[in-house]
């Protein structure tokens, strides 16, 4: 892992409930992807979700901003229940930022336009103000000088940092990270993790699907282990890594921490 991981742990200050998931199930046709998910996330809490591939980690966090629909149970985000109500869904998405494994920047817009698109069209922000905000966040992810380039001109790590800045421009209350470093070359992982750690320090509510265990140890309040669509185990990072209770967790950790 990177050196940052060994630095002092991020301190916790927790608040009210940000996300509440109750008895949530999801099927893809016949396939039962998520089984009886129950999860409470408090404001300011930082959760890392891990597990073998195909265990439903991504699907679960994609349910939180309804990029995926759940079929049974309740999901309440920031006090709004996710149903088929489009207005509710849009309201939730305005407050929940998401960073994707493959960045999904808009290739036809400059970095600046990527960052100002949603503030202008969703928050109805004047262009100058939106650009000012965008610049602020681009500085925070340390690439203000790339503002007028197109995403295709940037490296993977830079693109992912732009994607983070783009989400932050909407001033979200919750950030979801869906394997944000999995598509990156090893030397670029650190620059993205640094930005995420910084964000965690500032008290952002975060849910990260990631295999970066060093990041989990530094940042997370809680680590969740999923397998076959279920939450198998969750605990504070120290307990989770040093003293995993479930057999499957032990097996997973032994495989992932071997090298």
């Amino acid at each position: 892992m990177n050196e940052e991981a060994t630095q002092e742990r991020v301190t916790h200050t927790l608040g009210d409930i940000a996300i509440k998931i109750r008895e949530m199930h999801k099927w893809y046709g016949q396939f039962h992807v998520l089984k009886d998910i129950n999860l409470d996330v408090q404001n300011g809490e930082r959760i890392v979700v891990c597990g073998p591939s195909g265990s439903g980690k991504s699907t679960m966090i994609r349910c939180i901003n309804r990029l995926e629909e759940h079929q049974r149970g309740d999901i309440i985000v920031d006090g709004v229940e996710l149903t088929n109500d489009l207005k509710n869904i849009e309201a939730v998405r305005r407050e929940v930022g998401m960073v994707f494994q493959h960045f999904n920047l808009f290739p036809h817009l400059t970095v600046m336009e990527n960052c100002t698109l949603a503030p202008i069209w969703v928050r109805k922000m004047p262009k100058a103000e939106a650009e000012e905000t965008a610049m602020k966040y681009l500085e925070r992810v340390k690439i203000p000088e790339q503002a007028h380039k197109y995403p295709g001109q940037l490296s993977g790590g830079q693109q992912q940092r732009v994607a983070i800045a783009r989400s932050l421009c909407m001033n979200p209350k919750i950030m979801l990270f869906d394997e944000p470093t999995s598509a990156l070359d090893p030397e670029m992982i650190k620059e993205v993790l640094d930005v995420m750690i910084e964000l965690a320090r500032e008290g952002m509510t975060m849910i990260c699907v990631t295999h970066e265990m060093g990041f989990a140890k530094t940042v997370a309040n809680r680590v969740i282990f999923m397998d076959e669509g279920q939450i198998i185990e969750q605990n504070e990072p120290e307990e989770f890594f040093n003293n995993p209770q479930n057999e499957r967790t032990q097996l997973f950790l032994s495989q992932i921490l071997q090298h």
């Binding site: 901003n65 990029l67 489009l86 849009e90 998405r93 305005r94 929940v96 930022g97 998401m98 994707f100 493959h102 999904n104 920047l105 808009f106 290739p107 036809h108 698109l117 949603a118 069209w121 969703v122 994607a163 783009r166 989400s167 909407m170």
Partner: peptide, 27 residues
Amino acid sequence: VSHGQTEASLALGLPRKRTLNLVVIPQ
């Protein structure tokens, strides 16, 4: 136009119509 583009736009809170007009159709 990859589905990721639509997802990214929706995740930012852009309504479906604006997603089409601003993200999908230009590409």
